[in-house]
């Protein structure tokens, strides 16, 4: 009970039939394949503890809704990340609080050998990015982070969010451009933005 679609799928061809009687076997396989990367993605968004709950809930929801997964419509990875993305919405305030506080933690190892002044600049840049991410709409943030942190391609992101792939591409382009300019959505009167 694996793929049966011949159409070419760019990234993930895994389209199992989940309605079979061996529920445990199939979901065990799904978990082994997708839980760890999903956990890493969610942990970057809301922290490791919340990610534990979200991973757990994602798979339980998937289990309960397995009959709604249609392998003809998309790869199972997009379906799972779609469930996770919906569940993540409940934690959005927590995520935004952390981002506004200027990033949960910075990757200091990376800057170990650089000069102090560079490191300070780099940390400031990451903090600014964090605050900018908090200004994005939920949908824009999802597109960006599903691409950048979860490593999904545009087709998969479209499947996750249930929007056309063209919309994903244009949204990603617009968001990245805005972030590069330091004005994520609209010019803000807030100090930190003016400073930039």
């Amino acid at each position: 009970m694996t793929d049966r679609d011949d159409e070419s799928l760019p990234v993930d061809r895994d389209r199992p039939y989940l309605g079979g009687p061996d529920v445990a076997g199939e979901f065990g396989r799904l978990f082994d394949r997708y839980a760890a990367p999903l956990h890493r993605y969610l942990a970057r968004r809301v922290g490791a503890d919340a990610a534990n709950d979200l991973v757990s809930e994602t798979f339980l929801v998937a289990l309960n809704q397995r009959h709604t997964y249609d392998p003809r419509l998309g790869a199972v990875r997009s379906w799972l990340y779609g469930i996770a993305t919906n569940l993540l919405r409940r934690s959005v305030r927590q995520e935004l609080r952390a981002l506004r506080a200027g990033a949960r933690s910075l990757d200091r190892e990376d800057t170990h050998d650089t000069r102090v002044v560079d490191r300070v600049d780099a940390e400031a840049a990451v903090r600014r990015l964090a605050r900018s991410l908090a200004e994005l709409s939920d949908g824009d943030r999802d597109v960006l982070l599903l691409t950048s942190w979860a490593g999904l391609d545009s087709t998969e992101v479209a499947g996750v969010l249930g929007i056309p792939v063209g919309t994903v591409r244009s949204r990603l382009h617009r968001v990245r451009k805005a972030l590069r300019r330091g004005h994520p959505t609209r010019p803000s009167a807030r100090e930190e933005d003016c400073h930039d």
Binding site: G28, A36, A48, N52, S56, S105, A125, V126, L129, L144
Partner: peptide, 25 residues
């Protein structure tokens, strides 16, 4: 580069995932 460095992946105890898998199973 900034995206890469923001919110680095926390260390995950593999036992956590094993526990979640147990629940699912």
């Amino acid at each position: 580069h900034a995206l890469e460095r923001l919110n680095p992946i926390p260390r995950t105890d593999p036992r956590t995932l094993a526990g979640l898998r147990a629940e699912l199973m």
